[in-house]
Design a protein around this nucleic acid. Structure first.
Ligand SMILES: [Mn+2]
Ligand SMILES: [Mn+2]
Ligand SMILES: [Zn+2]
Ligand SMILES: [Zn+2]
Lengths: 135, 135
DNA sequence: TAACTAATTGCAATACTGTTGCACTAGCTT
DNA sequence: AAGCTAGTGCAACAGTATTGCAATTAGTTA
């Protein structure tokens, strides 16, 4: 338990009870999940509180977000040493069957050759298909 | 002018005046643009009509869509021989400065090696940076 | 041509996600 | 204890996408 508090403190986030709860949900899921999904995990927690918690987490590089095209942004825990820079970019996978979104942290985003004078700053690469469970 | 009508008919789309107008806007822009941007090009055209026009176009592979993370889906013309299959997938580029979204039709989406038992069906690859104009 | 039919369009209402203002509270500091 | 600050809850709002339904148009048949 202290474990989680340390993780937050390491990222300069005051470990309030709400934040610990949200963190635990993200930890438990081990996937990228939406604000709505997090909300469903609780009985009486306000959406905007979760929303602001996620913003805080993201600013401090505790989590990153993915837009998988389903309409809702999804969030997942970063690795301990993540700074959400180019090196930390990885491929995400949306299962067309179950709708779950996976972090493929071991699959880096390939950097394609761009036309002259277009610079690369970041990227969102979402692969869609069928996941191993739904196969 | 007949030119455009033929393009629509070739895709089995009845070339109504609304549809010709929407097509012409997409043609003129030569970029991926949102429903809202298309709406702005006209004085008195209903949003839902444009919306349904785009759905029709997309179903018939006349256009494809990109979710670039800006909140609004963007649409761009397909090539004549496009069937929106794996071969037709290409990289899109969102300029962080001007917000415009470009189709890089000559840059195919790289297919990364996925973990065991995850299948590839399609992908959305959006690169973000500064475009050649904003540079 | 008149009547009939199906597709298209316009208008209004709604859903869904994300975002903000503001008041209240809990916890820390002096 | 009083004051200060970050965090929280509630409600309202914004932006985009989507739908129901009635009105219109285009095409077809008698
Ligand atoms: Mn991830
Ligand atoms: Mn494109
Ligand atoms: Zn699945
Ligand atoms: Zn630009």
């Amino acid at each position: 338990m202290k474990e989680i508090e340390k993780k937050l403190q390491f990222r300069n986030i005051k470990p309030t009870s709400m934040r610990l709860l949200v963190y635990k949900v993200l930890k438990k899921k081990q996937k990228a999940i939406s604000l709505y999904e997090i909300e469903q995990e609780f009985d009486n927690v306000d959406r905007s509180t979760i929303f602001r918690t996620l913003k805080t987490f993201q600013t401090k590089y505790l989590i990153h977000s993915v837009d998988d095209g389903t309409g809702a942004v999804k969030y997942a825990l970063c690795d301990d040493d993540c700074t959400c820079s180019l090196n930390d970019l990885h491929v995400h996978f949306l299962c067309n069957k179950c709708g779950q979104t996976f972090c493929f942290k071991e699959v880096p985003v390939p950097i394609p050759k761009l036309p002259e004078d277009f610079s690369f700053e970041s990227a969102n690469f979402v692969v869609k298909g069928i996941c191993s469970t739904c196969k």
